[in-house]
């Protein structure tokens, strides 16, 4: 008994503090496939249910709705082309050196962590699709998480709701920056260190700020759902509802950020020092301190 306990303790220490046992994880991954697949069954059943058990009238109505939606998006996209060209021109005028272009790859959810204390999912893309650690994962609505472990044909994604996860964001309304951390609850995130004088309201949209160099900027992270101002506390409690359907999306996108130099655009002489941003930021956030793990 003692030997077994000691052996287990040794294994725990080895696996926690050294990478020596990593090959064992990699070899056993194919064996774990059916178990992971089983963990997504209810989600799959719900999707199948949605797809197969609808009446003809509902499908037709849905189809019409989607068609109008596409039309609206196409119309918006036309404006988008003009706007992005304009944006590019302005950036080149300001001597912006690079333009960030995001490519995405579609991935499917193939597993959910069985452990309620860890919000980790598995997607069916790995090193063979050029996935690397640290890439952002989004769904149709917003930011979901980041890749933390990559295998040959799949990878593990740490969700933004995990209690060990935090990411830098900014408020769309007034550009105030902040750090969002997960709470261990799929429906709730927390905004950290918000001073009582900060301008924040219920309903504000928070976007990823791209500080910390890990997440691409501009993806919706969540909306403020509740603000608790306790006069006895140094900071106010701000609850955020995640924009992404963190616990029910089956189809996800992995975002590759690639930086394109603006070489083919006319460069002007260095502009005078840019005016300081008017946005009041009560808490000065050093990007180096913007923790993302």
């Amino acid at each position: 008994m003692l030997i077994l306990a000691l052996a287990a303790l040794t294994l725990i220490a080895l696996d926690s503090f050294t990478p020596w046992l990593h090959p064992a994880h990699v070899w056993l991954e194919p064996l774990a496939q059916p178990f992971r697949w089983a963990s997504t069954l209810p989600l799959r059943w719900r999707e199948w249910n949605d797809q197969s058990l609808e009446s003809r009238a509902v499908i037709i109505a849905n189809n019409n709705k989607l068609k109008t939606e596409i039309l609206v998006y196409k119309a918006q996209l036309q404006r988008m082309a003009e706007l992005s060209a304009e944006n590019l021109q302005l950036k080149s005028l300001l001597n912006g050196a690079e333009l960030i272009k995001n490519n995405v790859i579609v991935a499917d959810l193939v597993g959910i962590s069985s452990d309620p204390f860890r919000h980790i999912i598995t997607i069916n893309r790995g090193t063979s699709d050029n996935i690397s650690e640290g890439l952002a994962v989004i769904d149709g609505e917003g930011l979901m998480g980041q890749v933390v472990e990559v295998f040959e044909n799949h990878s593990r994604v740490l969700l933004i709701t995990d209690s060990s996860h935090a990411l830098p964001v900014y408020n769309l309304r007034n550009n105030v920056r902040g750090i969002i951390e997960g709470s261990g609850d799929f429906q709730r995130l927390r905004l950290r260190h918000v001073s009582p004088t900060q301008d924040i309201q219920v309903g504000d949209t928070l976007l990823s700020s791209g500080l910390g160099q890990r997440f691409p900027s501009g993806y919706p992270v969540g909306t403020v759902s509740m603000i608790d101002r306790d006069p006895g506390q140094a900071f106010i409690e701000v609850s955020i509802t995640p924009a992404a359907k963190v616990d029910r999306s089956l189809h996800l996108l992995v975002v590759f950020s690639s930086v394109e130099a603006l070489d083919n655009y006319p460069q002007t002489a260095p502009a005078p020092a840019p005016a300081p941003a008017p946005a009041p930021a009560p808490e000065k956030l050093d990007p180096n301190h913007a923790s993302e793990q």
Binding site: A7, A8, L9, T10, L11, I12, S114
Partner: peptide, 22 residues
């Protein structure tokens, strides 16, 4: 069986082995 559980579910190896055997 605890070890198998750890390996299959990507936990730190040995955690379940220890807890279950004790």
């Amino acid at each position: 069986s605890g070890l198998l559980l750890d390996l299959l579910y990507g936990n730190v190896i040995g955690q379940n082995a220890l807890a279950m055997s004790v």
